[in-house]
Design a protein around this nucleic acid. Sequence first.
DNA 1: CTTGAATTGTTATATTATTACATAATGTAA
DNA 2: TTACATTATGTAATAATATAACAATTCAAG
Lengths: 139, 139
Amino acid sequence: MASLKSHNKKEQDLSLTKNQKIVLNLLQNSSEPLKAYSILDSLKTEGLKSPLQIYRALDKLEKLGKIHKIESKNSFIACSNSNCARNTAFTICESCGNVKELKNNYLSDGVNELIKKNKMSITRYNLEFYVLCKNCKTN
Amino acid sequence: MASLKSHNKKEQDLSLTKNQKIVLNLLQNSSEPLKAYSILDSLKTEGLKSPLQIYRALDKLEKLGKIHKIESKNSFIACSNSNCARNTAFTICESCGNVKELKNNYLSDGVNELIKKNKMSITRYNLEFYVLCKNCKTN
DNA sequence: CTTGAATTGTTATATTATTACATAATGTAA
DNA sequence: TTACATTATGTAATAATATAACAATTCAAG
Ligand SMILES: [Zn+2]
Ligand SMILES: [Zn+2]
Ligand SMILES: [Zn+2]
Ligand SMILES: [Zn+2]
């Protein structure tokens, strides 16, 4: 009989543990990046009560590419692409902190060219573009 | 008489305060990014003995564009360009952590194109390219 | 000189993240 | 199945990173 290992997106989600699912779910329903201790606060009711439970889930989810860490904000955001392959690009509003992940397929051609021209042999990249979002522009 | 404000590089350096000069000097002579508390340790002998003295100097130097923070490493590195105008790009070795700042004039054309294509109106950018450095490749 | 902005020194505290160790659940192969 | 390795959990303690608050000082602009 074939292996029971998961192969598609759905099954991969199912293979997440309880804690990982809870954390991922929270991030997917958040409109903004969340900090580890704010996640902890939100999930006290779900039985998660120590920082380590959060950090462990975050680590795993990040390795799976389901979430990304916004380093300059010590915050985490659910991946909004189907697959980033560890290559990420974000816009970050300098005024309100609003973060959006860029569609990597829009970028990849340009980035590849950039890499070629600079003769780099890279394993992955993370691009952070700082902006003034629409809201902050008008105000 | 004209303002006594500093206008060229040299005078700008001279306008740094004692603490700022000490911290900048340490970073400029370091072959790798340094963490705030490691800077503090190194500078105990110079009379800097509280974290705030370090963080304040780092903040100021960063605003002046003389150093940059590598967010994913909570570390600071002296700027190796003459002027980044807050636009930065680095290669970071995934194995040993070695960090190098890219010459931004090599990049800017490509980046500008990238930004145009994605119809972004940005205020600045920070690009992190992860690599395996020469040392780590051969070992 | 006087004013206001920037810098400093110091102590305390907040925020973010990991170590250490014991236990339980899960997957794999003989 | 048993045995073994791998992965995940729970919990407490602690490390590492960064900021708040407040008083005192320096220094240039007017
Ligand atoms: Zn993504
Ligand atoms: Zn905004
Ligand atoms: Zn620079
Ligand atoms: Zn290396």
